[in-house]
Amino acid sequence: MLELRLLQGSLLKKVLEAIKDLVTDANFDCSATGFSLQAMDSSHVALVALLLRAEGFEHYRCDRNLSMGMNLNNMSKMLKCAGNDDIITIKADDGGDTVTFMFESPNQDKISDFEMKLMDIDSEHLGIPETEYEAIIRMPSQEFARICRDLSTIGDTVVISASKEGVKFSTKGDIGSANVVCRQNTSVDKPEDATVIEIQQPVSLTFALRYMNSFTKATPLSNTVTVSMSNELPVVVEYKIAEMGYIRFYLAPKIEE
């Protein structure tokens, strides 16, 4: 038996909007720790890892570990039927082949339940080691989204170069080239507006902008984004989900042949 009650239902709606274009089908894993997901995109270039900790739910009952295969597009369709202020409860029976999403309006005058069919998904789970990254950039998530969107109108790939001086996003395309440099800036009124660059050593990596743009669909989840890089390793683009956990996107770099 599984019953997870989330007061801030809009968080789950935003999570689905953030990942549904990247991943088609995925297993949601439920354990005493929380509600989580790990999935790769269809071309196995990017990976998304989501964690919503048990403590973040108003009620969290998970009698035994459960893995529920869901089509994210269908799940998104159902969650779109929940109001932004609704409380969302996820319910499932052990060994059942459906999951139920229950939506309660804030003043309890409307209660809906949507039952969705589960699916068997054969997915490999990757072990992601804890890594000390050579460069960690924290910046406003909207600024990062803006840069990715702007550069993708010029080129297909972005070179992200981080050094003590700042972080440079560069692209080239048929019509020309572009560079955007963000310097460390901590003299801001609100901490979420700061750009903070921690560097162990300079890093420069090339990525497909199409994926970066897809990751920025998580922007509504957090005011800030953290981009962690080490030479020749996948980048991690992380959006913290307030008091609940995170959504992390891993993207393999492009390399010279």
């Binding site: 196995h44 270039v45 990757l126 072990g127 992601i128 790939t157 393999a252 770099p253 492009k254 010279e256």
Partner: peptide
């Protein structure tokens, strides 16, 4: 030319 690596080539399968 640049080649796109696969993410699964970086992390071991559990």
């Amino acid at each position: 030319p640049q080649q796109q690596r696969s993410i699964s080539s970086f992390f071991a399968t559990k």
